[in-house]
Computed example of a mutant assay.
Amino acid sequence: MTWIAALPMYNVTPALDFEWREWLADVLRMVKPACRIVEPDEELHGFWRRPNLLISQTCGYPFMHGLHEQVQLIATPRFDAPGCEGAHYSSVLVTRADAPFDTLAACRGARAAYNQDDSNSGMNVFRHAVAPLARAGLFFSAVLRTGSHLGSLRAVAENRADIAAIDCVTFAFVCDEMPELARQVRRIGTTAPSPGLPLIASGTVPPATVEALREALNEVLAAQPERAKRLRLQGFSVLPSSDYERIEELENEARAVGYTRLA
């Protein structure tokens, strides 16, 4: 079997995409399987379920909604970014730099943007933050699905939306790599934290290979500290799958007060 690998989640710019691919290539050289780094040529939910997937990164929301039954957790990155604490992260609530909103509560009747229906950082924790403020399941005047965190940031910056929840790691990379976009928005809050985006392997990957991947992650990180700094990587934690139940708890807390979707 020829293994495949991809890191599709934090490629905010072409330069970062190159850095992540180089980092992944170094990890794979240490583990030494026959493995190709690929660009997912299908919808990510299908890609993450490929039986020859050696390593990739997923969002915690799809992980808890069925994916965890078919893959193995390798590790969860620890990022150096405002809003991260250990292997946990939160989302930044942003509005336009010149918008009149200073709090989430002040955004009643405003326009929201979010990336995807199955995103923890862009939808689930956003829904959880809004839920106590909603009335009869409603809070916003309009909701726009953009397809990506960058799309949501641009929608806010271009006055097509008033507020969005942005993964704090993505937002830190935007501040590093796209400062002109970062200057067009302003933080007005932070969501509840939850475990970060996990690195996963197919259930067919031998346990010894998973252990070798964990060792390689930290060895490659230590070997090039300047690259680790650019990627904002501090290390990796091996979390039990049960830690990710926090994502379902956030969903259930919103649903319990009648706020089942961003609206």
Rank of each mutant, 00 (worst) to 15 (best):
S141I: 02
E180D: 15
G203D: 00
D162K: 04
S241K: 11
V185D: 01
L217K: 01
F140G: 10
T190A: 14
A105P: 11
R160A: 14
L93E: 01
P62H: 10
A75K: 05
R227N: 05
S90Y: 04
A208W: 11
A216P: 02
V94W: 06
A161I: 05
A110H: 12
L262I: 04
L239C: 00
E219H: 06
S148W: 09
T95K: 09
T95L: 12
A5K: 03
F63A: 08
N11G: 10
H128N: 02
A182I: 10
A208Y: 04
M178D: 00
V130Q: 07
F139W: 14
D117E: 07
R230L: 09
R232I: 05
A172N: 15
F47R: 07
A105G: 11
T146C: 15
F171W: 09
V92L: 05
F236P: 01
T260I: 11
V238H: 04
R232S: 10
S148V: 08
L153R: 02
D167V: 06
D26H: 07
S242V: 08
L262K: 03
Q224W: 09
H45C: 11
D26E: 09
P51Q: 05
S237Q: 08
T13Q: 00
F139R: 11
C175K: 14
R227W: 03
D98G: 11
I55T: 13
S242N: 06
E215W: 08
A256D: 09
V238F: 04
P132S: 13
E248Q: 15
T191P: 05
L153W: 00
V12Y: 06
A131K: 12
L133N: 13
N11D: 12
P179D: 05
I4W: 04
A161Y: 09
P40D: 03
Q57M: 15
P179Y: 10
A131I: 08
A97G: 08
S90T: 12
A157T: 00
Q57F: 14
M9N: 04
F126A: 03
D118S: 10
L153Y: 04
L16D: 03
P51K: 02
A106W: 09
A182N: 08
N124C: 10
C84N: 00
S242R: 12
V257L: 09
L199H: 11
